[in-house]
C-alpha cells in the first residue's frame, strides 16, 4: 500500500478557535476559582497558586475581559461549524449503542483513535464539552446581570442555583480538559494536526 498524501485534519479555523479557546478558558477558570474563593459554597477553596488575578478585583477584571474572548470565539466556531456541515459530519450521529460498545472497546484498549474520525465516545465527550461551554456562558451572563436577565435567573431556579450551575459547567469543562489532555498523552500523534493541520503521513505495510 502506497503512502497516503498528507491531508488536512483540522482546518485553520478549527486550530485557531481551539487554541484561542484554551487561552480564554485558562483565564476564565483561573480567575473564576479566585472569585469562587471569595465566597465558597462548597467545603473547600482552590489553592491560591492555581488562581489568576491576585485578588478578587483582579480576578473579576480578568474574568469580565476574557468572557468576551471566550464567547466571541465560541460564537465564531459554532456558526462556522453549523453552517459548514463540520458539526454534523464530525459529531453526529451519536447512538447510545455505539457509545456503549466503544466504552467496552476503550477499557479493553481496542478502541481505534483515528485523527479527525471520531468514535462514539469522543463524539459524546466533545458534544458534552460544547454544551458545558454554552452552559457556562448562559449561567455566567445570568450571574453578571440577574436583573436585566431575570427570566434566565428564574428559569435556572434563582441566583444561588445559577452559581452552582455555573460551577457545575466549569467542573464539566475541567473534567473534559483533563480527559482530553490525558488522551493526547496516550495518543501523541493527535497533537500535531491541531498545531499544523496535517497528520503524519502513514507508511504502507
Amino acid at each position: 500500500m502506497a503512502a497516503e498524501p498528507a491531508r488536512v485534519i483540522h482546518s485553520s479555523l478549527v486550530r485557531a478557535t481551539h487554541w484561542i479557546n484554551v487561552f480564554a478558558m485558562v483565564c476564565m477558570v483561573g480567575s473564576g476559582w479566585r472569585i469562587y474563593n471569595a465566597s465558597p459554597f462548597l467545603p473547600f477553596t482552590f489553592p491560591a497558586k492555581l488562581t489568576l488575578g491576585d485578588w478578587l478585583g483582579g480576578a473579576l477584571a480578568i474574568h469580565f475581559a476574557a468572557m468576551w474572548l471566550l464567547a466571541g470565539n465560541f460564537a465564531v466556531y459554532a456558526v462556522w461549524s453549523w453552517r459548514s456541515g463540520h458539526f454534523r459530519r464530525r459529531f453526529l450521529p451519536v447512538r447510545a449503542h455505539d457509545v456503549g460498545a466503544d466504552i467496552v472497546r476503550a477499557v479493553t484498549f481496542r478502541l481505534p483513535h483515528a485523527n479527525g474520525n471520531y468514535n462514539a465516545v469522543q463524539k459524546l465527550l466533545y458534544l458534552l464539552a460544547m454544551a458545558g461551554v454554552a452552559g457556562a456562558i448562559v449561567s455566567g451572563v445570568t450571574l453578571w446581570k440577574p436583573v436585566q436577565f431575570r427570566p434566565l435567573e428564574f428559569a435556572m431556579g434563582g441566583y444561588d442555583t445559577v452559581r452552582r450551575v455555573h460551577f457545575a459547567a466549569m467542573s464539566g469543562i475541567v473534567l473534559f480538559a483533563l480527559i482530553h489532555v490525558a488522551m493526547v498523552a496516550v495518543v501523541p500523534s493527535t497533537l500535531r494536526p491541531m498545531l499544523t493541520g496535517g497528520a503524519p503521513t502513514r507508511r504502507g505495510g
Partner: peptide, 26 residues
C-alpha cells in the same frame, strides 16, 4: 471574615491590578 481580610490586605496597595497577572501562568 474573608472579605474583611482581603479588604484589609488590599488597603495598603496603591496599584490594585498591578501584578494581577504576574502570579499566573498566562
Amino acid at each position: 471574615s474573608t472579605f474583611h481580610r482581603i479588604a484589609q490586605q488590599r488597603l495598603g496597595r496603591r496599584n490594585l491590578l498591578v501584578k494581577t497577572l504576574s502570579r499566573g501562568s498566562l
